[in-house]
């Protein structure tokens, strides 16, 4: 019989905690802890994996612009009010974690800032799950609005983003002051991921408050490239490179539902089968691959895809093989 070969890792991934309960000065009913891995995904014999990957439901502050019909079927009833949307994923779909994208602040939409801040305040009251808050992607608007969001959610220990190598100072300072965690985004580039973590930590934010968004591609759209980047970063972390030992957040839904294979209707491509099956499957398969690459937080959209990936994670952890 061939002897089993087990790697002996000396490093580990940082642990990041999201959400603060009333005992901790916040108002969330629970907290979510990610990271802490001492080996690669599911290699239980090699090292401890103290925290399962978690799924965050993605919601927007406005009615989404380009979500395909398959997603409309699940959410269109609550798109008139994002607070209803948040409540639906919390109560009906039993979300553990919520990721709010403030697309309404984008210059092309330009919603009133006070309106957005009120939305966040009310969201804290209506839903008591740990929160991820992300901006619209426009640096100037994000730098104006996200620090204010950070202020009004002070002590809730949110995960707020995103910062990049060229734009990290303003939001990092806010997150540092208000006790939150930060998302450091790099464009599928290990060198920039590492550099950004150093820049952030130089401002005084400790490594256990940084989550890396390595940026991902969906199945068929650069997934393999994403995988190798994440794997390389994770291997370095397990070999004690503490600068990049951060957990990963992956925006799976956003990328998967951009794929033609996920959203095209069956009447356009008959042989591809029903989009109600194909779409969630595309998102689910992308998610599985990223979990294997070491993803810690998956931001997803389709309830069925989320249900299936959760089942998969539970199964892998239960069998402990």
């Amino acid at each position: 019989m061939i002897k089993e070969y087990l790697e002996n890792w000396t490093g580990l991934v940082n642990t990041v905690k999201i959400g603060a309960t009333p005992q901790e000065g916040g108002t969330r009913r629970k907290t979510i802890t990610v990271g802490g891995e001492k080996t690669l995904a599911f290699l239980f014999k090699e090292g401890h994996l103290p925290n399962k990957p978690v799924i965050a439901y993605e919601i927007w502050d406005i009615k989404p612009i380009d979500w395909p019909e398959e997603l409309t079927n699940y959410y269109s009833d609550v798109w008139s009010d994002p607070l209803d949307w948040a409540e639906k994923v919390a109560n009906v779909y039993k979300a553990d974690l919520l990721c709010v994208r403030l697309m309404g602040i984008h210059p092309e939409i330009n919603r009133d800032i006070d309106y957005e801040l009120n939305f966040i305040k009310n969201l804290l009251k209506r839903v008591n799950l740990p929160l991820i808050i992300v901006g619209c992607g426009d640096d100037e608007k994000d730098n104006t609005v996200l620090p204010l969001c950070s202020q009004i959610t002070k002590n809730e220990r949110c995960l707020i983003g995103e910062v990049t190598q060229d734009n990290y100072k303003i939001l990092t300072a806010a997150v540092l002051a208000d006790g939150h965690n930060i998302i450091a985004q790099s464009p599928i580039d290990i060198n920039i991921a590492k550099q950004l973590n150093i820049l952030i930590s130089d401002m005084g934010l400790s490594f256990d408050r940084i989550v890396i968004n390595p940026t991902v591609g969906a199945l068929g759209y650069g997934l393999e490239y994403t995988y190798s980047i994440m794997e390389r970063l994770r291997l370095a972390a397990l070999n004690q490179d503490k600068v990049i030992s951060s957990p990963f957040i992956c925006f799976v839904g956003q990328e998967s539902w951009r794929a033609k294979e996920a959203k095209a209707r069956q009447d356009e491509f008959y042989s591809w089968g029903k989009e109600s099956r194909r779409g969630p499957l595309w998102e689910m398969i992308t998610a599985v691959s990223l979990v294997l690459a070491g993803a810690d937080i998956l931001v997803m959209r389709h309830p069925k895809a989320i249900e299936k990936i959760k089942e998969y994670i539970e199964l892998m952890f239960k069998n402990n093989f």
Partner: peptide, 15 residues
């Protein structure tokens, strides 16, 4: 043996 970044000397010392 280390991942390159512009501040790699500082990164090594942060270990």
């Amino acid at each position: 043996k280390q991942i390159y970044c512009d501040s790699y000397l500082e990164a090594y010392r942060k270990k």
